[in-house]
Nucleic acid binder design. Sequence first.
DNA 1: GTAGGGTTAG
Length: 747
Amino acid sequence: MASLPSMVLKAVLNNPHTITTKPRAKQLHAQIVKHKGLSSTSLSFILSIYADLNLLRESLLVFNALPSPPFVAWKSIIRCYTSHGLFAESLASFSRMRAFGKYPDHNVFPSVLKSCAFLMDSRLGEAVHGCVVRLGVDCDLYTGNALMNMYAKFRSLGGNGGIRGFADEVLDEMSQRVNRGNVMRQMDDHESCLDSGPEMYQLNSSGQNEIGSLEIRREACCQRDSVRKVFDMMPKRDVVSWNTVIAGNVQSGMYGEALAMVRAMGNANLRPDSFTLSNVLPIFAEHVDVHKGKEIHGYAVRHGFDTNLFIGSSLLDMYAKCARVADSYRVFHMLPQRDGISWNSIVAACSQNGMFDEGLKFFRLMLKDDVKPGPISFSSIIPACSHLTSLHLGKQLHGYIMRARFDDNVYIASSLVDMYAKCGKIEKAKCIFSNMELHDIVSWTAIVMGCALHGHALDAISLFEKMQMEGVKPTYVSFIAVLTACSHAGLVDEAWKYFNSMTQEFKINPGLEHYAAIADLLGRAGRLEEAYDFICSMPSEQPSSLWSPLMTACRVHKNVELAEKVAERILRVDPESIGAYVQMSNIYSAAQRWKEAAKWKVSMKQRGFKKKPACSWIEVRNRVHAFLSGDTSHPYYSKINEALEVLLEQMEKDGYKPNTSEVLHDVEEEQKKQLLQHHSERLAIAFGIISTPPGTEIRIIKNIRVCTDCHEAIKFISKIVGREIIVRDNSRFHHFKDGKCSCGDYW
DNA sequence: GTAGGGTTAG
């Protein structure tokens, strides 16, 4: 290494910031040792350079060589620990420094406060705050900012009772002192000049009225919180101070206040920067206010922030939460580079908007881009497997999750519970659920809904009760789950009990889904008129989706007159309802009123409506095979047909009698049997039987309800082939085993 | 000394 001339060394010593690389620092270290020896001063000097470069190893080596480190050395090592995320070490050094009788100053407090914040050590944080005040450092800008940040973090986790009490004390004392010194800043100066902000004023002029007026009024009644008190006491504030207090407001849901502060910030002649924008964007995402979000986007573009990674993922997320995925795509593709968070954001954007295939595509692209998926990536992509019922993919991801030890993450575990339940593996879902250390409302809801879909109504109900015994309050969604459970098992009284407790005890306004569950339940139970009246009792206009299950119930219970009334209701709100036409023609066919059935069919044709064909899917060796009713196109069709013939023969010996009343065509009896024999689920099941080893369970997904004859037939088949056959139709799972179905023939 | 992404919905 070339020797540094002593002139240069002198220049460097006067201006250490010219050392910007590790080799240069090491070179300087050698030179200093050579020329100046191992004095405490020279070692502290080189230590501060290492600390500035964030070189922990080197800093520690130098620090440990100091028998009694001077104050500057302590400062360097504390700063270095904090910026390496070694917060406990940072605080330990702080205590040791104090034990050596060294007094901290404004350079060291920000690091110490940050460490307290990360470790959520409120007691120490309070003590440090006291120390700050006693040493008179409380008017330092950086220290004030760090204090606010710390209090905001404490508040966001677990309230602020004790902290507020302490901060109040300290701050009141400060306030008196400031008052005496006659340099009091007006507590509310930011409010008196709210109306004159530059660009951001327009941006938010109406936002406060719509979003925040209530919160502002409520907040005005409360005492100022610790963050705000520190802010109000600060003699000098910069953009970081404003951003910190704004972020604190957003974290505690005080959106109105946050937006008002953005305006006030403009008044203090400070321009909102990228931090400000990424603080306020989630407000518009949560309030689904794409107009305000777009204005922020405009501001970001005008100020060149739109290519900032943080702003990019916030914008992308805001558009996704406002159901504008196309705009999310645009933002994503505009980003000059992407990190794990931008990838996670685009994956979540797709997943949250029902675009599961696209979500998977982005997930794969992310892997291709060498970005390692983290816990959040998995909690965003697992729901795609649930919705696509891709057990194969879900299992692969679960394997990765276990290897990466992400399985104790509550978001991931909940999504896995849901995935296994939706893919037909309810026992696996239950197993993951019971292995979870902590259950939140989402994981409880996922397992209750899983049990509901598999017809395990009593399990669903007892889990729902257990949840409440463990102090978890049911929510809107969890009531949907428990009502669904009741509905699938015909538990009318229990359903009413939950519906009433939801509205009366928990003050939750029933939504469409709750009405749908009750109406469906009454319909399935054959209480058709009651269901009709219940739907009519709904305060707002009833959408056709509420009536459709009742229509099905009318068909099952053969009530043509009510069906006519229901059809009229449906067509009133949705004249294009193909379902109503199909159902009416089916209902008349079932009643052998062929003429009327034909009338509905004809008018359907005239309107150009096409019936959704019945379809069943089965996954065999990682490939999905789809079958339509009467489908002969599968390459193994003749073998499938052969298998069905053999099965039919055995089934008839065992006592199976085809129920041709389900065939809604005006054809001969023998032809009806043939039609039943080739329903899509039977083709799929026969294919599953001939293409998998004996004993393998068979999982089928179907887009419409299983007909009663197929339901009966599959029971026989399960016994003959000695296999479990799991069929998911459009509303639930049926597990066929040993000639019985888990639904107990109620579905 | 400040910032972005996640799970449940017949």
